[in-house]
Design a binder for these strands. Structure first.
Length: 227
DNA sequence: GACCAGGCACATC
DNA sequence: GATGTGCATGGT
C-alpha cells in the first residue's frame, strides 16, 4: 500500500499540500467545458493528450452542432474520427465515444440526471465496463460530470507524491486514489480543486523530464530524482 | 528531431 | 499479474 513516509497523520499532510497549492494557483474552476455531456466527451478526448488539442476537437464538434448525444449517435464513426483528429488517437477515440454513447443511451436514456442519480460505486463499475473508459476517465466523469465525491488520481498525482517522497516508488495510480479517498473528507469541491491543482502543478513543475523550478509545495524543490 | 501530453485495450510472458 | 506495445496529433 502507498504510504506517506513516517507519518500517520495523512489527512493533515494532504490538506497541507492542498493549502500550499491552492494558495499558489488559486481557484481553478474545473472542468473547462460547457456542460456535463461535454465534460464526458472531453474526458475521453483528453486521454494521453494535451488539453489544447482537445479544445480543437471540441470546437470542430461544436461548429457542426454535434455536442449532443442525439447528434453524435447519428454521425458515422469514420466521419466523427475526422472531426476529432486534432485530439490524436482519433480512430480509437471515435470508437470509444460511440461505445460510451451506447452505454449512455441504453442505461440512462442519454440523460445526465439519470446517470447522476445512480450511486457512485455502482456507476463507477458500469463505466469501467465500457470499452475505452478506464479508472481516470471514469473518475473524471463521476466527479466533474456527475458531481460524485471521488478523487481523480492520475500520473501527475503519482509523480508529484513520489518526487516529494510521500509515497513508495511502487505505489500505483490506483493505490494513490485509495490513499486520498481514505484520508480526506468526501467533498466534491475539495476533490474537484485538488485534482485540478495537481494537474496544474504537474504541468508546470513536475514533468517526466524534471525541470522543477519553484515548486509551490516547497519540498525538495530541486532534488526530484532522489530515492 | 526528440520529447511530451489530464490513458486504455490487448497481447504476451 | 506484470510488462510491453499500438494508437496519433500538435506544442515545446
Amino acid at each position: 500500500m502507498a504510504r506517506i513516509k513516517g507519518m500517520s497523520a495523512l489527512r493533515g499532510e494532504l490538506l497541507r499540500i492542498y493549502g500550499r497549492l491552492n494558495d499558489h494557483f488559486g481557484d481553478l474552476h474545473w472542468w473547462p467545458a460547457e456542460g456535463p455531456f461535454e465534460v464526458m466527451l472531453g474526458a475521453i478526448l483528453t486521454q494521453n493528450t494535451a488539453w489544447t488539442n482537445v479544445e480543437k476537437a471540441i470546437k470542430g464538434l461544436r461548429e457542426r452542432g454535434l455536442l449532443s448525444p442525439e447528434a453524435l449517435e447519428k454521425i458515422d464513426e469514420t466521419d466523427l474520427a475526422e472531426i476529432i483528429r486534432p485530439s490524436g488517437y482519433f480512430r480509437v477515440k471515435a470508437r470509444r465515444i460511440k461505445a460510451f454513447l451506447l452505454f449512455f443511451r441504453n442505461g440512462y436514456a442519454a440523460r445526465v440526471e439519470a446517470m447522476a442519480a445512480e450511486p457512485a460505486d455502482s456507476l463507477r463499475e458500469r463505466l469501467l465496463a465500457v470499452s475505452g473508459i478506464g479508472p481516470e476517465t471514469a473518475d473524471s466523469i463521476l466527479l466533474y460530470a456527475c458531481g460524485k465525491p471521488v478523487f481523480v488520481s492520475d500520473a501527475y498525482t503519482q509523480r508529484i507524491l513520489h518526487r516529494h517522497h510521500l509515497i513508495d516508488r511502487d505505489a500505483g495510480v490506483s493505490e494513490v486514489r485509495t490513499l486520498f479517498m481514505e484520508n480526506l473528507p468526501h467533498d466534491v469541491s475539495l476533490f474537484n480543486q485538488f485534482h485540478a491543482l495537481l494537474v496544474a502543478t504537474g504541468k508546470t513543475f513536475c514533468r517526466k523530464r524534471p525541470k522543477c523550478g519553484e515548486c509551490p509545495l516547497g519540498i525538495l524543490p530541486h532534488r526530484i530524482e532522489a530515492q
